[in-house]
Design a protein around this nucleic acid. Sequence first.
DNA 1: GACCAGGCACATC
DNA 2: GATGTGCATGGT
Length: 215
Amino acid sequence: MPNLKESLEEIYNKLFKAFGPQNWWPAETTFEVIVGAILTQNTAWVNVEKAINHLKKEKVLTPLALKKVPLKRLALLIKPSGYYNQKAKKLKNFIDFLYKEYQGSLSKMFREETFTLRKKLLKIKGIGPETADSILLYAGNKPIFVIDAYTRRVLLHHHLIEGKLDYSSLQKIFMQNLEHHPQLFNEYHALLVRLGKEFCRATPKCKDCPLEGLN
DNA sequence: GACCAGGCACATC
DNA sequence: GATGTGCATGGT
């Protein structure tokens, strides 16, 4: 039985070989990544894209414009992404934070020490661990590993974990066994999502899974 | 017409 | 501390 570090490296290599680079996060600006991270909570990405396109078309996909747009109007613009009343508030909560702490400057925000920023993000109502980490990794290019439903499903399906581990335990598995390179964490998470979408769903075995023969 | 999708906050036990 | 529930749209 190889150790965890070797298993994680092998998984990455197999997935990269099978799928190639995933080019996450699909966005034109840093701010768009952050908005997407909030809108995609428990929501299919195609629906998030519709919402983001509305925001682009109405030219409110900047911190200042989002600060100015009325809550009700914002909610209607993001309606396709689901939970739109909740998410409109969440976006406003983030904007309030951004202006209060960093005068609306994302680059100033990301100059904050990573774990200090993470703690602050988690205090925002509507931003939990996955959203905070997605912002840090995919918008801020910080070496933080993102855990999500797919990650958990893949690890369980391939018996790399047993039972239910909480978010931070799962995150430790990756962060204690891999080099802290943002690009590696970025690609690895994206590859796990890709695998989870296409495999690791059927039981007991998935046909042609890139990780077949791992265990 | 179920069931699901790149969660989170809050209530209740 | 664990478990349950509301939030809501659009695709399969």
